[in-house]
Amino acid sequence: MTESNRIIKENFIYPRSRYYGQITPENLLFNANLQEFSQKITYISCLETSGKLSPDEAYRQIKKIWKQLKKSKKELGITPNTNGM
């Protein structure tokens, strides 16, 4: 696989959206974490819907990654006052 094909495949599997908020290193990092969270939720939901994960296991995994996202938000110091609104 050529390098350009690998990049195209990665962009398809792991899409990223442009960030339009207040640009700070913390906000950009949190946005990346949020997009990763969203992608994982999509995978877990699809696995549960197709019967490959039980509802309990899907809930456990979602709860785990939700806690990771909350922790990253806290560690980055993201508060309602720092989002530019």
Rank of each mutant, 00 (worst) to 15 (best):
E57T: 01
K9R: 12
S54I: 04
N33Y: 11
W66L: 01
W66Y: 15
S4E: 15
C46N: 08
Q61R: 14
I8S: 13
P55I: 04
K63Q: 13
P25M: 00
E10G: 05
K71D: 12
P15N: 06
K67Y: 09
A32L: 15
G51M: 03
I7P: 03
L34G: 10
I44R: 05
K52S: 01
N83L: 09
I13L: 07
K40S: 10
R6N: 13
E48F: 06
F37Q: 10
N27L: 06
S17E: 12
G77S: 09
T49H: 03
E26G: 08
E26A: 11
N27R: 07
A32T: 15
K64F: 04
G21C: 11
K40W: 11
R6C: 07
K40H: 13
Q22K: 08
N11D: 05
K9S: 11
E75S: 06
Y14H: 14
K64Y: 11
I41V: 13
F37G: 03
R60N: 07
R6T: 10
E10P: 03
K63V: 11
Y59C: 13
R18Y: 11
Y59M: 06
F37E: 12
P55N: 11
G84Q: 09
A32Q: 15
R60P: 05
R16Y: 06
T79M: 02
Q35M: 13
Q61E: 12
Q35C: 06
E48T: 14
N11V: 02
L28S: 02
Y20D: 08
S50N: 09
G21Q: 09
Q22N: 09
Y14K: 14
I62Q: 10
I78G: 07
Q35V: 13
Y19W: 00
S4L: 09
N11F: 01
R18H: 10
P80E: 12
L53Y: 04
Q22Y: 07
P55V: 00
Y20K: 08
I7Y: 07
E57C: 02
R16Q: 13
L28H: 00
L28T: 04
A58S: 11
M1T: 14
E10T: 08
T49P: 03
S17D: 07
P15V: 06
P15Q: 06
P80D: 14
I65M: 02
K64D: 14
K71Y: 05
L69H: 02
Y14T: 13
F37K: 05
S45A: 09
N27T: 09
E36D: 15
E75D: 14
N11E: 13
I7L: 10
M85G: 14
D56Q: 10
E36P: 01
L34N: 14
N5I: 11
A58Q: 12
P55C: 04
I41Q: 01
C46S: 01
T82P: 02
T42Y: 01
N33C: 15
I13A: 02
M85N: 15
A58C: 14
C46K: 02
S45F: 00
T49R: 04
W66N: 10
W66F: 04
S45R: 01
Y19I: 01
